[in-house]
Design a protein around this nucleic acid. Structure first.
Length: 642
RNA sequence: GCCAAGGUAGCUCAGGCGGUAGAGCGGCUGCCUUGUAAGCAGCAGGUCGCGGGUUCGAAUCCCGCCCUUGGCUCCA
């Protein structure tokens, strides 16, 4: 058994780019002994594993800097993240941004000091004593959770930390590091433990990589749907007077939504779905039956009641005459299912009616904590592209295949082609019989196999009322978003006693699939805006082209062309604002992300042609009027993937 | 909810250790009749998030509240 350092010395290798060793798929640092007779490879500093080692050491450098500047601070833990690392500290007064700057500087200093890092082990009981003497109560807590007899420590200069590793051999090998933020966390994530301050940093192999990271952050900012939503007049959120998390769709945004809804409805009607509308509020009785009041009330807006005692005295004569017999409470709906079940139950249903597919643009309200609200992506009022399918269990597989097919077809229209599919199976606490779960899980699995999707199984991650399939989409920046979900429900049909009459003339319990393709229009719109950076597919652009008249003398021709385009079905605007330079008006269209600009002047008027400038492109097409219209129609009315 | 940073004109932001509130963009008006990403000039636009306190005087200092942004999954 030898350490990596010893092996390197033995072989006379002096390569500063080596960060560790990989053997049997496990990563070891150069301080740790391995069996040198078994196959192993050196890990380069720039590889993902090497980076992880470096980030781990960065966390120690952070802790060392904090200890130097604020010696009274107690240490907790400091793992790595996807782009860097963090360390949790106990310091009741917390840290400020100013402190962060100082800590950052101290970290750079520690890097320069090029401190040798050493590893040593200690008996667990000794380690506990070691930390008890120093008052490091969190370290003591951590040690108490460890079962091993011996624990390892890493030492760099005056700084010593209990740590599993792996670590670099010197602080000088730490790469490009920068602290990026603070956050409050509870020790062990448990609210009963005291509050710690988590300091975040990013760390990369080179300054260039670090720069690229910040450039990427800039790119994200540019695509931020909240910024684009304002600039392109798509939506607004007025936290003060309307309410946080409540979305107002402006004219342009509403146009896009209508286009999405229309296409959605067309596809769904082609596949046997029937549209319904249901109220935004319902008597609390409904939510009592469904069980939402019991299990979901922390997300529900508080109840609206009439006929409370105070109001009794305030009633005027008319109100007394009309009379409130009893206290009636209403709730804003957090889900649409109880309404759809009520529709199902409103008549006796035959097996011949199944599967019965009810769909709705169902606007629901959920009281999310203020801290989690985020633009369109996390809101308190949103419209689901919801549907409930009432069926017999033996129809499940075919139905799921159909839903997957609709999903694939519809999402590809927006350019989403990469899907990540997850099948979640029975959890510990659940309703429904084992036979039902067996059958349902199997049917979902078979449906997925037939759909040709690669999928992974999340054992035990199903909802208590049934197994589910979740689908995530990947956007152009590689970010993954959960949108579609298909959930089987064993619970609600029981709660509502929802039956159908089977061919043998007996009543049988119906089964329900909850499903959404987009999830919610708000959230999906936000994802779409960021995915396209505001350049929506031409089909969905609120304004597809602007006809620009170069000067007053050709306004008649511009109006003539505008009429033609408009009547041919394009969404077109007319710009006769000849008070402005042409280049300014082109620029305005570019900023508004208008797909096509039709620039008309004397030349076009005389030659009876139109010139088309495509957004973001310099080439200008000169076409006859009819050719031009055909060209625009071809690009603006076709739906990709349809 | 918790930690940090914020909230000043429609938007982006400056100012501020207490003494009449600023710029750019946008808007309006006028001039220029304009050829493919910002022509020129003038004007309008603000309870400085809300409430309270200190003060002769608060956008500025203090307290409380509301809202926003970034975090709060990563576990020696």
């Amino acid at each position: 058994m030898k350490t990596g350092l010893e092996i390197l010395k033995e072989r006379n290798i002096n390569d500063p780019s080596i960060a560790g060793i990989k053997q049997r798929g496990k990563v070891y640092d150069l301080h740790t002994q391995i069996d040198e007779n078994e196959q192993f490879e050196f890990i380069k500093y720039s590889s993902p594993d090497g980076l992880d080692i470096m980030r781990h050491t960065s966390a120690h450098v952070l802790a060392q800097a904090v200890k130097r500047l604020f010696p009274e601070t107690l240490l907790s833990v400091g793992p790595t993240t996807e782009v860097g690392f963090f360390y949790d500290f106990y310091r009741p007064e917390g840290f400020t941004e100013e402190d962060l700057k100082k800590i950052d500087q101290e970290m750079q200093k520690i890097k320069k000091e090029n401190l040798i890092i050493q590893k040593f082990v200690m008996k667990r009981e000794d380690a506990i004593r070691f930390y008890e003497e120093r008052g490091e109560k969190f370290k003591v807590e951590i040690l108490k959770d460890i079962k091993d007899e011996y624990v390892s420590f890493y030492k760099q200069g005056e700084f010593v930390d209990l740590c599993r590793g792996p670590h670099l051999i010197s602080t000088g090998n730490v790469g490009a590091v920068k602290l990026i933020g603070l956050s409050a966390v509870h020790f062990k994530g448990n609210e009963n433990f005291p509050m710690l301050t988590r300091i975040y940093g990013v760390a990369f192999a080179t300054e260039q990589d670090l720069e690229n990271y910040f450039k990427m952050q800039e790119e994200l900012k540019k695509r931020d749907h909240r910024k684009l939503g304002r600039e392109l007049d798509l939506f607004l959120i007025d936290e003060e007077n309307i309410g946080a998390g409540l979305v107002v769709w402006l004219q342009k945004g509403a146009k896009v939504r209508r286009l999405i809804e229309d296409l959605w409805l067309k596809i769904h009607e082609q596949n046997g779905y029937q549209l319904v509308y249901t109220p935004h509020v319902a008597n609390e009785k409904l939510w009592k039956i469904s069980g939402h009041l019991e299990l979901y009330s922390k997300f529900m807006f508080p109840s609206m009641s009439f006929d409370t005692k105070e109001q009794e005295e305030e009633k005027d004569d008319f109100e007394r005459k009309v009379g409130y017999q009893e206290k009636i409470s209403y709730r804003l709906k957090p889900m649409n299912c109880p309404f759809h079940i009520t529709i199902f139950k409103s008549k006796t249903r035959s097996y011949r009616d199944l599967p019965m597919r009810l769909c709705e643009f169902g606007t629901v309200y959920r009281y999310e904590k203020s801290g989690v609200l985020h633009g369109l992506l996390r809101v308190r009022g949103f419209t689901q592209d919801d549907a409930h399918i009432f069926l017999k269990l033996d129809q499940l597989e075919d139905e799921v295949i159909s839903v997957i097919d609709i999903m694939k077809r519809f999402l590809s229209v927006f350019g989403f082609k990469d899907f990540f599919v997850f099948l979640s199976t029975r959890p510990e606490k659940r309703v429904g019989t084992d036979d039902e779960w067996d059958f349902a899980e199997n049917a979902l699995r078979k449906a997925l196999d037939k759909s040709g999707f690669q999928y992974s199984i999340d054992p035990g991650e199903g909802v208590f009322y049934g197994p589910k399939i979740d689908v995530k989409i990947k956007d152009v920046l590689g970010r993954v978003w959960q949108c579609s979900t298909i959930q089987l429900d064993f619970n609600l049909p029981r709660k509502f006693s929802a039956f159908y009459v089977d061919s043998d003339n007996t009543r049988k319990q119906v089964y329900i699939i909850h499903r959404a393709i987009l999830g919610s229009f708000e959230r999906f719109f936000g994802i779409l805006i960021e995915h396209t950076a505001g350049n929506l597919p031409h089909y969905f652009a609120p304004t597809q082209c602007v006809v620009i008249s170069v000067k007053d003398t050709v306004n008649d021709y511009a109006e003539f062309i505008y009429d033609l385009l408009s009547k041919s079905g394009l969404r077109v605007e007319l710009d006769l604002n000849t008070g402005q330079r042409l280049s300014k008006r082109i620029r305005d269209c570019e900023i508004r992300k208008i797909p096509f600009m039709i620039v008309l002047g004397e030349k076009e008027k005389n030659e009876k042609v139109i010139t088309i400038r495509e957004k973001g492109k310099d080439d200008i097409k000169k076409l006859s009027i009819q050719e031009g219209i055909n060209y625009l129609l071809e690009l603006c009315t076709r739906v990709s993937g349809e």
